[in-house]
Design a protein around this nucleic acid. Structure first.
Lengths: 207, 207
DNA sequence: TTTCCATCTATACAGTGCTCAGATAATCCA
DNA sequence: TGGATTATCTGAGCACTGTATAGATGGAAA
């Protein structure tokens, strides 16, 4: 911090501005959410002039696209951290937990990743990062019962949970718990008791 | 149109500005989505000065809150238009269809309704409108298997579908179909085949 | 050393939400 | 009917935003 800023300010050429701006943008998302982001604030945090980001990213969308790519990468890591066991249904439940946990732990990133107006999806890296993050997830579903339709249904369910909780539409489930407590304590029970895709449920019986 | 605008321009007092601004904002959402909205553009469409809306709504959030209230009202109407039958599971499936259909038919409204940063949820009318829109929906779920947890799971599933489709994350299911075609033709099959809450599935077997 | 070029600064423009003094007219009251 | 009150709306101004462009800077290649 204290040994980078002066160097960055002293040097006309930042040296690593692109990475610094991505980092700064990600920090803004963490601190003030997606609505707190501005290209100028990112430039300010990197200790650089207003117009500097344009050279590296072209536009605000360009910078946010990079952050979204990192977001998908970190989501993929969180999902891949769930070790596959012999019980695909239990795995699926753990994956759901990891997905919701990620959304609550990184709401800014998560929201950005699904905002088509803020991210350039024509960037070929976007579809790569997006699918890469969900492949382990998709195969875990496929081990129970394949098909795009099933993957879509499970994903919808998980994604809907994350969004409803994140948007404050599920407060009646919290019982005064913090988001961390909710994911750690309440959500696992909720998933095993009422989630039709998780352990204790047999999708074959349902179809 | 042509007989309202001149009257609105001629008269210093608009006479019905509050309603006109809400209507204008809703039209902006329809035409250009949530990101195309601006308080100034709403004022422009109503043929009124920039500062006029502030008197009626205080802020942009104030105006958007009114639009969100209308949104919940129209969602409630769409869901209540689904007639209850003797088969609660089939009803649930129709409700899911209506929910997703609403989201795709009114993406601007739908997105606004779930944006906590754009809507004033402290307005007591918000929680009223929000819960009122979903009561019929909730009771239909309750007829199958009660409990807040089940309602949350079904809602999550439906809401997740709507969001993933709306955010362009389910294009692989479309097979080149338009959103209208998708809801009319493909989604019903998808729901009856892969949705664990719909007709053809017995939640009792799953639990 | 000198040229070249990527990088960054400075400035300007059009747009935004919000604030506030003042103009306007509808309404209420005598 | 006439006058005062009050809700309504205007217009200008402030601080902020993203983007475009001309020019300054200095590292790197020749």
């Amino acid at each position: 911090m204290e040994n980078e800023r002066p160097a960055a300010k002293a040097a006309y050429h930042h040296g690593n501005l692109k990475a610094a701006l991505i980092e700064a943008a990600d920090m803004i998302l963490r601190d003030h959410g997606i609505e707190g982001f501005s290209l100028r604030e990112a430039a300010r945090r990197a200790g650089v002039s207003i117009g500097a980001p344009a050279h590296h990213f072209g536009s605000a969308t360009g910078l946010l696209t990079e952050v979204a790519l990192l977001g998908y990468e970190s989501l993929g890591q969180a999902l891949n951290a769930v070790p596959p066991t012999e019980d695909p249904a239990a795995d699926l439940q753990q994956l759901a937990l990891a997905y919701v946990n990620f959304a609550l732990a990184h709401p800014g990133r998560f929201r950005l990743m699904f905002r088509p107006d803020l991210v350039n999806r024509d960037d070929p890296r976007y579809s790569l990062a997006s699918t890469a993050a969900l492949t382990g997830f998709a195969t875990a579903i496929g081990r129970r019962k394949g098909g795009m339709a099933e993957i879509f249904m499970v994903w919808s369910s998980i994604h809907g949970m994350a969004n409803l909780i994140l948007d404050g539409k599920a407060k009646y489930l919290f019982n005064g718990a913090t988001p961390e407590d909710f994911v750690a304590n309440l959500l696992p029970d909720l998933l095993s008791q009422a989630w039709p895709f998780g352990a204790g449920h047999s999708p074959q019986d349902c179809v």
